[in-house]
Design a protein around this nucleic acid. Structure first.
Lengths: 231, 231
DNA sequence: CTCATGGTTCGATCTTAATCGAAGCATAAC
DNA sequence: GTTATGCTTCGATTAAGATCGAACCATGAG
């Protein structure tokens, strides 16, 4: 029965507390240096370095060196997806949540998932885009409709300017706190970036929290419809 | 940055080779006894028992005892989803596939994913159901259309007879080999079961492989359309 | 009842790998 | 050039947990 890819290797990679902390920190979407990550993980620089090389060898993170700094980030959206899915399991599965934490409500409301908007507001935006026919779901694939291209344009995003990478334009990603999908992929990244440019929201340093301004709340509500909380 | 659910615990649970083998074996969808699983994992009965109690405590597997046997199965579709996702990472990520294995092509063609059809044929069926409007994708949620109810009925599935559990009727699940979605949930389970009833396919004992008969291939092609391999 | 079988628990052993500090390298600042 | 900073490598220590066999419990078969 030992068919298929060997899960154990990847899972063990994620399964160490220090490495899990590192990966969680990278879910913020920011590229972080080894020193910063050692702090996040609560571990000495040398051990962090060792962990990072393992994560890189395992294809979970990607490193770019710039000068005497080495910046680490998640290797792909796929990795972020798996991490979110694991969080979903961990949240639902553990008998007692260790510490719900004071920041928990804020995290559930709006947070960053690698580089796109997640949490309640993320899933709300996603549902709205679907309801309006801006996005068209084809199974797990997402298409941007003609109307959608227009919408995105007026929102201030230049599609042609997006990096033409291997990564798909639209993807969905299962949200651990809402247990619904939110928008990922290049477009998801661009949407969040645009909201930050507009001054709607900004990330809280050192966390995954995204905090909306008063104007941001208003703009978001206007653009993505009424706030009807889940059905 | 230590916000959100703690991934490490769950990931470490999956990350031990013996436990990973156990979980992979349970992906066959069959409930297996501790003794059988110890064989699958290549480990003594006592260690398997220890692993199983950890997996149960962690909420990954569920145990039912019947007489002096104790049957283990995956705790939920969610767990199966996460395992498939991890397989996707492991398949894409590892620099050199350890051993593609002789059964690999068969696995990629048609296999069981917990209790529904996966692999090339699984994703083909899924795409067909969407194209014909039998299933309607609403983000990550799937609805069965009116036409769909009729279709499912003529295929020989009594929807009302399905267990009315907490689990959703339709779900999608990301296929590790095809990197596309296939159908999961109660309906996915029922579809596969019906195919087995019809004599279209049967599971190969001791593996996740699903092998179609000649008539099964024909019926499948007729029911789910031309065989146009991926676009 | 006795016996066999499936499973769990216990204790001891042993391997793996996480950890740190110190030393070494490379790059940038001066 | 010299010095400081970011990171890696090395070696030694240590702790966690995977493993097994033996003893033990529970259930079903006879």
């Amino acid at each position: 029965m030992r068919d298929g890819p060997d899960i154990a290797y990847v899972a063990a990679l994620i399964g160490d507390p220090a490495r899990a902390n590192i990966l969680t920190a990278l879910m913020s979407g920011k590229a972080l240096t080894a020193t910063e990550l050692s702090g996040e993980a609560g571990v000495s620089l040398s051990t962090a370095s060792s962990h990072l090389s393992k994560l890189e060898a395992g294809g979970l993170v990607r490193a770019r060196k710039s000068g005497r700094h080495k910046y680490f980030s998640l290797a792909s959206d796929d990795v972020a997806s798996v991490l979110e899915a694991l969080m979903g399991l961990a949240a639902g599965t553990r008998q007692l949540r260790t510490r719900p934490g004071p920041r928990d409500p804020e995290l559930r409301r709006a947070r960053v998932c690698y580089n796109h908007l997640a949490g309640d507001m993320g899933t709300r935006m996603y549902r709205c885009l679907l309801d309006r026919g801006i996005l068209i779901a084809k199974g797990d694939l997402l298409d941007l409709s003609e109307a959608g291209r227009a919408f995105v344009g007026t929102f201030g995003i230049d599609l042609d300017a997006l990096p033409r990478s291997r990564a798909p334009l639209c993807r969905d990603c299962l949200d651990w706190s809402e247990r619904q999908a939110h928008l990922a992929g290049q477009l998801g990244r661009a949407m969040l970036a645009r909201m930050e440019d507009l001054g709607w929201a900004r990330r809280v340093a050192g966390t995954r929290i995204v905090r909306f301004t008063r104007e941001g709340e208003a703009g978001f509500a206007e653009t993505f419809g009424a706030v009807e909380q889940r059905l």
